[in-house]
Simulated scan of single mutants.
Amino acid sequence: MISPALTDALDRWLDHQRGLAGAAENTLKAYHTDVLGFLCFMGQHHGGAQGLAAIADISVRDMRSWMAHERGRGIGARSLARSLSAVKSFYRWLADREGFEPTAVLSVRAPKFQRKLPRPLEEGAAAAMIERVGLQASEPWVAARDIAVVTLLYGCGLRISEALGLTGKDVPLPEVLRIKGKGDKERLVPVIPAARDAVAEYLQLCPYPVSDDAPIFRSLRSKPLSARAIQKVMEQARLQLGLPATATPHAMRHSFATHLLAAGGDLRSIQELLGHASLSTTQAYTAVDAAHLMAVYDKAHPKA
């Protein structure tokens, strides 16, 4: 149970994240769930409704109690670290407006966890995936559509939602495409000739008219193509190619970044191309590249 004043503060913080920080709606929902759960726990922990004054007096011991409670109900270290990050962001914002000292909350360390490395495909496997998805459809225009979408994922590093969000205003594809990604953040993405050609071939074969405000990629019934449809196409292709379950649409984006890094691309440029807010997210690809290098070394180096 939390007070109306604290509920209002939470709503205003979310508006701040939406407007100034540019957080996506899914991110905002996660923030709301995490922070509201934290505030409700504090209310139960202290035996009464929590208002602004009570929140200002939260101690390190209170924070540890909350984290222990979360772990006790099965929340993993990664999820708890995410929740703690949201709580700290809210607390920092609230302390700045209410004039109290936030050190007790901000000083709490997140639990350690092993970050999952991206799982890219080998270059040959990525090329085979693009070819294979084009062999599964009974309709030539559907085959061209699937090839175009997967080529955009691998050739331009787009998220599946970004590729499927392209509209008639975006075609014919230019050499540099302006993409609106997570949190409505815009970035410029070079479009390789193979991607431009694949999309152009699809549009030539597609039986449905293209309008400026509608997505260019359509289903058999002329509805906007869903991400699940491409996921299913790739699931079938990976089974035929003998690829692991990690060969998903997002793996094509991972492959784009990893192969670009291996070819000499610098992290800052790759960060811009992918639209990562933090360089630390992009740095995960250096670990992937190093792991691949060691695997090749172990396989090829003569053993004593």
Rank of each mutant, 00 (worst) to 15 (best):
G72N: 13
L6S: 06
G19E: 14
L279R: 02
H276N: 00
D184I: 00
Q204D: 03
L279D: 01
T27E: 06
D11K: 13
P120Y: 14
F90Y: 01
A287L: 15
T103F: 13
R145P: 00
T246A: 10
A287S: 15
G22T: 02
G19P: 08
A95L: 08
A163D: 04
N26R: 05
A200M: 00
V171Q: 11
A287G: 09
R268T: 08
G275C: 06
K303T: 14
P190T: 04
E25Y: 07
L36K: 14
A237I: 04
R61D: 07
A81D: 06
N26G: 04
L203P: 01
V176L: 01
K299W: 12
D8I: 07
L188E: 09
R218T: 14
S269Y: 06
R187P: 04
L52E: 10
K116M: 10
K182M: 01
V191E: 04
A227R: 15
G134Y: 00
E25F: 08
G155S: 07
G275L: 05
A125M: 12
A277R: 01
L39D: 12
A143V: 02
Q231E: 07
L6G: 03
R61V: 10
L164F: 09
E98N: 11
L94E: 08
A54R: 09
A21N: 06
Y208L: 09
T248Q: 14
P102E: 12
A163G: 08
Y154D: 05
K169N: 15
L173A: 09
A53R: 13
G37L: 05
A287I: 15
R221N: 01
Q17I: 09
A304W: 10
L117M: 13
T282G: 01
R221P: 02
K112R: 15
A200Q: 03
A81P: 00
S83F: 00
C206I: 10
S255T: 15
G72S: 11
V142S: 08
A245I: 02
S222H: 10
P120K: 11
D298F: 15
W93C: 10
D15F: 00
L261I: 08
G43A: 06
G22A: 02
P193M: 07
M252L: 11
L261H: 00
K169W: 11
A237G: 04
A68M: 15
A163L: 04
V233C: 03
R61L: 12
M252E: 05
C40E: 15
A137N: 06
G124M: 03
A163S: 10
R97E: 15
A148D: 02
W141Q: 05
S255L: 03
L135Y: 09
D213L: 15
R132F: 05
A21E: 04
F113S: 07
F217P: 03
R187S: 02
R253P: 00
L166T: 06
A300Y: 14
M42Y: 01
V142R: 10
C156N: 03
A49F: 04
Y208I: 07
S3P: 08
P190V: 04
L239H: 14
K303I: 12
V133T: 03
T282W: 01
F90S: 02
P118E: 03
A143S: 11
A5Q: 01
L239G: 13
S161R: 10
R97K: 15
F41T: 02
G99M: 12
L158Q: 03
R253E: 02
A195H: 03
